[in-house]
Design a protein around this nucleic acid. Structure first.
Lengths: 244, 244
DNA sequence: GTAATAGTGTCTATAAGACACTATTGA
DNA sequence: TCAATAGTGTCTTATAGACACTATTAC
């Protein structure tokens, strides 16, 4: 009997080994009513039927070219949003986190702007809604270990805003510096000094003026957009500490 | 027929769905001969038999309580090292990265000190050795997408040394500030200003004097050890840029 | 005019970079 | 004594924080 890789693969049966269940779960964040919100779905099917959970599910090995595709597919299925920041956060694993058996979930977070979004119910969820993140910590329980996953995603987000421009992804395509500052303040949970903030953002060249102005009840503000949207998030040389 | 979660689980068969292969791969880093090295094994079995690869493999759903356990188990199996920094980096996935089918690997990096380590061959590897990371980029090919995984781990390491004290994990339990500085310089690939470096490290309180001195051909140096080994890595308020 | 929000000028504080200096060992 | 490496003093630089100031709109 020969021993080529081809022979090996011919005789290889993926089910000869005990494989873990592998899924993707997502914390989809947005800012609504001056607060950080995350998208939750009420599970329609066992296990954990009737419980609120992060959207997620199995990999479609026919449709998905990678886990990133799986995550983006889930995002589109629930929100219709195609372009946004989607980032792998961490994986969670173990024998007990899912009653179906040893499982692994790769957690993603997505940041989207709260504009023109219509949430989409499907066969896996009887309800879908935005929930303020600070309300989940205390009152609610989530399915599986989703509270821990949400926590990890929230921590990642809070950590990254210290030194990156990530929060721009929570805003619509055009926004004022004051709106951006408010977003940072919501995430940092403390006020940010206006001059420092503007200096930091403007000197980083991550934004450019659109030329348009946003009018309101007072002085109109310049509108900005992100430069080079496909590029990486800018890394600031110092952390933003917020007012002391 | 009732519809409880228990009934659901009774009838649930994990193999009714097409599951991806899920594995763990590790970039185990150390400093040897003034260079960053990574541990490679020569694969003894199909697929990619005979190729150099990062150590890794399947989850043992009986032994491993989590993927972190899987990673730590692999580390001990290859190096005998139990205590070290082990960190999840990212996952890699897709239909084509492994010829056996749609697969997911969770990549870990480990940082260990190059002391008293005896590399351990086992049934999965005919050879095991340290390889300088800079030699892999150009000449060598690695099995599967392991070069991409190694790259991601290397990038993560390089990024984290800018603002954390991570590299202390590459040194033995007692070391001098000069040795620590050299380690940072190897990772940053540029010289670091001595006074700035010492000020930064000493003011962070991540180290404490052991009381002992390291003698050499010149003035003896104070030996330091990490304070609070179980704690997190210290986050510096500014990045280390190295000499300009 | 006033209220409200946008946007600036400029001083201080902090931690990094530069670099010359002193200290302590072995040979 | 000298060579070598450990360790310090102190000036400069870069960027964040503080906070008062001016600018522009609607009413």
């Amino acid at each position: 009997m020969s021993n080529t890789e081809k022979d090996f693969l011919t005789n290889y049966n993926i089910h000869d080994y005990e494989l873990p269940l592998t899924t993707v779960d997502m914390a989809i964040f947005t800012i609504r009513d001056e607060a950080l919100n995350v998208l939750l779905v009420k599970r329609n099917q066992h296990p954990a039927k009737g419980k609120w959970a992060l959207p997620g599910g199995f990999i479609d090995t026919h449709k998905d070219k990678s886990l990133d595709d799986t995550a983006k597919r889930k995002l589109v299925e629930k929100t219709g949003v195609k372009i946004s920041h989607v980032e792998q956060v961490a994986s969670f694993s173990g024998k007990k986190r899912d009653p179906r058996g040893w499982s692994v979930t790769i957690a993603y977070m997505a940041l989207i702007a709260d504009e023109h979004i219509k949430l989409i119910k499907d066969e896996s969820s009887e309800e879908i809604q935005w929930m303020p993140v600070h309300q989940i910590g205390k009152k609610m329980s989530l399915a599986f270990d989703h509270k821990g996953i949400l926590n990890a995603c929230h921590e990642r987000l809070k950590s990254k805003i210290q030194y990156t421009s990530l929060p721009v992804n929570l805003l619509p395509s055009e926004f004022t510096l004051s709106e951006l500052q408010t977003t940072f303040e919501i995430l940092l949970e403390k006020p940010v000094e206006k001059k420092s903030f503007r200096r930091r953002i403007l000197s980083s060249d991550i934004l450019e003026e659109t030329g348009a102005m946003k009018s309101g009840p007072s002085r109109p503000a310049k509108l900005y957009q992100v430069v080079n949207k496909e590029g990486k998030n800018y890394l600031f040389p110092r952390t933003l500490e917020g007012s002391r």
